[in-house]
Write a protein that binds this DNA or RNA. Structure first.
Length: 471
RNA sequence: GCUCCCUUCGUCUAGUGGUUAGGACGCUGGCCUCUCACGCCGGUAACAGGGGUUCGAAUCCCCUAGGGAGCGCCA
């Protein structure tokens, strides 16, 4: 039997990191075992499902590179099928109509809570003949005794007593099937062999197994993965900043970094930290997934993102960086080759957004000098060095404007002045960059170009002069 | 309240009866150095608590505590 897994989000919002990890695990498991991964949209809740959410989920899956072999399937397209199944259940006496009022159910619930019991439907309509033409729901007739055993691939054996379960609604009064029914029918129809999902579904599992059995299907294997908590250990929510996969993309994270981060949340392979998708597929074992929830840690994600920024193909990073430059109002075509900038700067940024920010000076003159940097380096004592550098740069032919040529000039001036390289390079750096941090001075000058270099040295000299006068 | 799940450094984790409890992020000391990063070397810090079982428990059993999920005509 070939392995088939599925990812089944409900389109009531964007794809969040928890869902993305569940999708990743399902994907890895299918790929690992030569099986198929299917995407199914669980949109039976007509009220809350939206087309925008569907698009957002598909966009996120594509960005992450989690390719599905089949789908997306939509449950709303399969209502006929669900209803046929429900009819069968009704005919076989495995389900029944119920017209209990909301008030009755509410009262029942209150009574049970008062008696310290678990609120459950009491089976009031079980044996009754309910008029099919009047408003009603349909409930599944859950076994009243015995147990349901779930041999979870991650948690091991979990046993539920049927006495704890009740007769759940499988069709609403508006005729729409409910989650527990549609999920079961779909998993069976789609030949899903392994259901990998969040552990918030553990308690649904015995109900679903009971329905599956009533229908004569063999239940799939289940693997319940723990949830992901926010930085503070509380449940992930909007107040934890980005929870949406797309938000991470927009903030300048690389898909391989997010995937690598996510796969290590609840799963590990010895001491290995860096995993390509191929590595993950090769090493992934569902039984190695942890049982405990884990907290999302942005610092570690940043570390991974920086790692991939440094090691990925600079040309590709340049393409991804381009829109972030545009967002700063910069046209990358109007300056040095972006790939060269990436190579010079990648080790200095944690995200593409940050990479764009620290690279803006290659493309346009900065607004103001960093105060601390200017105070420390743009002082009268630096004037002589800057003037000599300016003169030397001005005399350089464009073909001499190379790493070696620039290095030679800067070192030469330091030698003339009989001082350390830093005494000359730092004022120059602040003059060119506006602050005290940048790639090597030769590399910086090379990319900034001769014209901007001369212009900015003049500006720095004017700044020093103005300052001398003021003091 | 009931049912189910979970518990190793701050965080992610390794560990399956005998380890100086390992790695990673973070933090931190140093090296490198024209700056900032990167990189390299070092440090910091954990078995929730209590009972057993055993010659010996992070590892097996029980209890307690703490955390989470479910208990919908949501998924």
């Amino acid at each position: 039997m070939t392995v088939r897994t599925r990812f089944a989000p409900s389109p009531t919002g964007y794809l969040h990191v928890g869902g993305a990890r569940t999708a990743l695990f399902s994907y890895l498991f299918a790929r690992k075992h030569g099986g198929q991964f299917v995407l199914r949209i669980e949109d039976t809740d007509l009220e809350r499902s939206t087309a925008e959410s569907v698009n957002a989920i598909l966009e996120a899956m594509t960005w992450l590179g989690l390719e599905y072999d089949e789908g997306p399937f939509f449950q709303t397209h399969r209502f006929e099928r669900y209803n046929a199944i429900i009819e069968t259940l009704l005919e076989k006496g495995l389900a029944y109509r119920c017209d209990c009022s909301k008030e009755r159910l509410e009262t029942l619930r209150e009574q049970q809570m008062a008696q310290r019991l678990k609120p459950r439907y009491d089976g009031h309509c079980r044996g009754q003949a309910i008029d099919p033409d009047r408003p009603h729901v349909i409930r599944f007739k859950n076994p009243v005794d015995g147990v349901v055993v779930v041999d979870d691939l991650i948690r091991g054996r979990i046993v539920f007593a049927n006495a704890e379960l009740d007769d759940l609604v499988i069709r609403r009064s508006d005729g729409a099937p409910t989650y527990n029914l549609s999920v079961v029918v779909d998993d069976a129809d789609m030949g899903i062999t392994h259901v990998i999902r969040g552990d918030d579904h553990i308690n649904n599992t015995p109900r679903q197994i009971n329905i599956l059995r009533a229908l004569g299907y063999e239940p799939p294997r289940y693997a319940h993965v723990p949830m992901i908590l926010g930085d503070d250990g509380a449940r992930m929510s909007k107040r934890h900043g980005a929870v949406s996969v797309i938000a991470y993309r927009d903030q300048g994270y690389l898909p391989e970094a997010l995937l690598n981060y996510l796969v290590r949340l609840g799963w590990s392979h010895g001491d290995q930290e860096i995993f390509s998708l191929e590595d993950m597929i090769a090493a992934f074992e569902i039984s190695d997934v942890n049982r405990a929830a884990s907290s999302f840690n942005t610092d570690k994600l940043d570390w991974l993102n920086q790692h991939y920024l440094q090691h990925a193909d600079p040309a590709r990073i340049a393409r991804l960086l381009s829109p972030h430059m545009g967002r700063l109002g910069i046209d990358p075509a109007a300056g040095p080759d972006l790939s060269s900038v990436v190579q010079a700067q990648a080790a200095r940024a944690k995200t593409l957004t940050e990479l764009a920010e620290i690279s803006a000076f290659f493309y346009r003159d900065f607004e103001t000098f960093d105060e601390a940097a200017a105070k420390k380096h743009l002082r009268p004592v630096a004037r002589d060095g800057l003037e000599r550098l300016r003169a030397a740069f001005e005399l350089m032919a464009y073909e001499d404007w190379t790493l070696a040529g620039l290095k030679h000039v800067v070192e030469g001036v330091a030698e003339e002045l009989g001082c350390a390289l830093g005494k000359v390079a730092q004022p120059l750096r602040v003059a060119i960059v506006g602050r005290a941090a940048s790639p090597g001075i030769d590399e910086t000058l090379l990319l900034v170009g001769k014209e901007a270099t001369l212009r900015r040295i003049d500006r720095a000299l004017a700044f020093i002069a103005a300052r001398a006068e003021r003091d």
